[in-house]
Design a protein around this nucleic acid. Structure first.
Lengths: 291, 291
DNA sequence: TTCCCTTACGGAACCCGTAAATATT
DNA sequence: AATATTTACGGGTTCCGTAAGGGAA
């Protein structure tokens, strides 16, 4: 189970082709063929069906393990190197789009005011990428958001030992078109909305909602439209146009949409700060950010 | 970061000696020396100080990553092989000692009554070993227990993607010597016991209690005596002899000790069932066990 | 000196590229 | 026939064992 072989296996499975994987990895097709053969010999099982190239059941299982394993390997390397790295006067932040609410923006402003020479780089992307960037040391600190019961921690993808700290919790609102029949309500219950049409987007993970409603595998929260991307503005526009509902922190609402407070179950939009071993000199800085 | 090198690094660090690690792993000292040199060259950092052999700060960080990484690697291999394995009429259970309460024992009896030809092997050991055994396929199903807020899942060590299911939740009791001044109380609050003397044992993880009391790094729950082992009987004897208090599920109490219900915070002793990909034919069996 | 790790060196195994063979569409 | 994977083979590298070389107690 050489990680090297595991990585080529993942590449082959992703491309569905030995030759394409070879091109990506800078090997010859022959080398890829030999590597896959070596991996299959090691496990004593066929992992890929050929022509067309697709994983066998055993291969599919291995694929589920491979990516997180390789990530943790990179994360371990990054963490060790980071522990021995020089102090920087540069803070690299990775954040999910909704994590940068007013609470954090204010704290970040405070940090910058106190340290005028500090350079801050902020990159926004999806949850998995944020955790991966923090794990691999491409970002010093990550900011992630999600929906949770009050004072419950977020459930984050596992990329090795990392520290999390609560940054803020904020009320959730159901975003609706302004002319929606429910737009006038004072508050809404989630249970009454499981059959409404929802916009599926990474900003509002419906699977998480089903989970919280005690219906993990169920078919609640049907989606008329699926949006891929990290863009809050787009989602608001989709909701305003009547494509479906979504759940957002109250501070993210705009005049484009109507926002009705979510009454029950009691859920919050939670923001957490995420980091591995911090480079020397940034520890107090992180403390300022987490409050 | 070859896992092979990582494994020898762990062995060397554990033994504090190149030669001892060589003996354990079946290599010559020279080979070990070269492997460590290769790992240090790969990372560009010294990982071990020599004479005496002990990890550098960077090496210490790597050690924290290495063990879980190697476990996940073995777990991935086991999971893939398991997916292709033959059905067995043998169920191998691994369980923490307190996980086998009356609820589970009854269900297990039911399963055996319905499947007379089924052989059951049960091994009890600590939490980390149970998860490792399940991950590596040495056990088909694991049973683990812990203290949690009601209907909250347990926090388990991470050994790769595994499925957990709630088996039972039971009230907790504070175990006291029968002649203890508090033994007559109708109920006790945990907050009033943070300064009492406790028996530290794997059966009642005090770190977890501090965590639940919102004092993760604190010095609450002082211990007069530390017990290592998986033995409930011994812990009860220690408590009865006045070495300290402990927290146990009500069903584990014996006449040796007095048990006072825990009133606040509301905590339960929770048992969960843990398994990876199940061998064909055992899926329904697991469903019976989890209820 | 003794113990223990490091370095030098040689043989075997491994890994990848070239190129020919083979299988599927 | 065309495309894509497998196999054969050779050169270069890696890896481990033997054996000699150092440094600390």
């Amino acid at each position: 189970m050489d990680p090297h072989l595991l990585a080529t296996f993942v590449a082959v499975a992703r491309h569905g082709s030995f030759s394409a994987a070879a091109t990506e990895l800078g090997y010859t097709q022959s080398a890829i063929s030999q590597q896959i053969a070596a991996l299959e010999a090691d496990l004593g099982l066929p992992l890929l069906r050929r022509r067309p190239v697709e994983p066998t059941p055993a291969g599919a299982r291995l694929l589920e393990h491979a990516a997180p394993l390789l990530l943790r390997l990179r994360a371990a390397r990054a963490d060790v190197l980071r522990a021995a790295a020089r102090p920087r006067h540069r803070l690299r932040l990775a954040a999910t789009p909704l994590s940068t609410g007013p609470v954090l923006a204010r704290r970040l402003a405070g940090v910058r005011a106190r340290r005028p020479r500090l350079e801050v780089a902020l990159h926004t992307c999806g949850l998995d990428q944020v955790t991966a960037m923090v794990a691999e040391g491409e970002a010093d600190v990550g900011l992630v958001d999600g929906i949770a019961a009050p004072s419950d921690p977020l459930r984050l993808p596992d990329a090795g030992p990392m520290t999390t700290a609560r940054v803020s919790e904020e009320d959730l609102a159901v975003a609706l078109p302004v002319d929606h029949p429910l737009a006038g309500r004072a508050a809404l219950r989630l249970a009454g909305l499981v059959d409404a049409r929802w916009v599926r987007s990474p900003l509002c993970p419906l699977a998480r909602l089903r989970d919280l409603m005690g219906d993990p595998a169920g078919d609640g929260f049907p989606t008329g439209l699926e949006h891929t991307g990290d863009d809050v503005h787009t989602v608001l526009a989709l909701v305003a146009a009547g494509h479906g509902l979504t759940l957002l922190p109250a501070s993210a609402l705009t005049p484009l949409v109507a926002g009705v407070p979510l009454a029950a179950p009691r859920l919050v939009h939670r923001v957490e700060l995420l980091h591995g071993t911090l480079p020397p000199g940034t520890a107090d800085l992180v403390k300022d950010l987490s409050g």
